[in-house]
C-alpha cells in the first residue's frame, strides 16, 4: 500500500481514471491502528482492481483540509478522480468489503 504525500496526491488520485482508496490516518489515532490492518488485508484481496493508498493527516494537512476530513479514520473512495464514497470511523472488515466490492 502506497503512503501518499501532498505532492503526489493529484497525480496518484485526482488524475487517476480508475477506482482508488485513500485511508486518512494519524499515528496518535487508536481506531486508525485497528482499521489499518483490515485495509491492508483488503488491499491484498482487491489490490489488482482498486488502487489502495494511505495519507497521514498530520504531515499533509492541506489535503485533509481540502477534502474536509473532520474525524479519523476516514476512508475515501475515488472514482475517476472524484469522491464516490466517504466512510467515517472504524468499519468491520465484512462491511468494508461489501462496500468496496461495489466498485470492483
Amino acid at each position: 500500500m502506497k503512503e501518499l504525500l501532498e505532492n503526489d496526491f493529484t497525480e496518484e488520485i485526482e488524475n487517476y481514471d480508475g477506482v482508488a482508496l485513500v485511508d486518512f490516518w494519524a499515528p496518535w489515532c487508536g481506531p486508525c491502528k485497528m482499521i489499518g490492518p483490515i485495509v491492508e488485508q483488503l488491499s491484498e484481496e482487491l489490490g489488482d482492481k482498486i488502487k489502495f493508498s494511505k495519507l497521514n493527516v498530520d504531515d499533509n494537512e492541506a489535503i485533509a483540509r481540502k477534502y474536509k476530513v473532520m474525524s479519523i479514520p476516514t476512508i475515501m473512495v475515488f472514482k475517476g478522480g472524484e469522491v464516490a464514497d466517504t466512510l467515517v470511523g472504524f468499519r468491520p472488515k465484512q462491511e468494508l468489503e461489501t462496500i468496496l466490492k461495489k466498485y470492483v
Binding site: V57, S71, G89
Partner: peptide, 16 residues
C-alpha cells in the same frame, strides 16, 4: 453531524 464536527472522543480528534 457525527463525524462532521460532532465526536465522542475529544482526545482522538483534537489534533484536527
Amino acid at each position: 453531524f457525527l463525524g462532521k464536527g460532532v465526536g465522542y472522543c475529544a482526545t482522538c480528534d483534537a489534533p484536527l
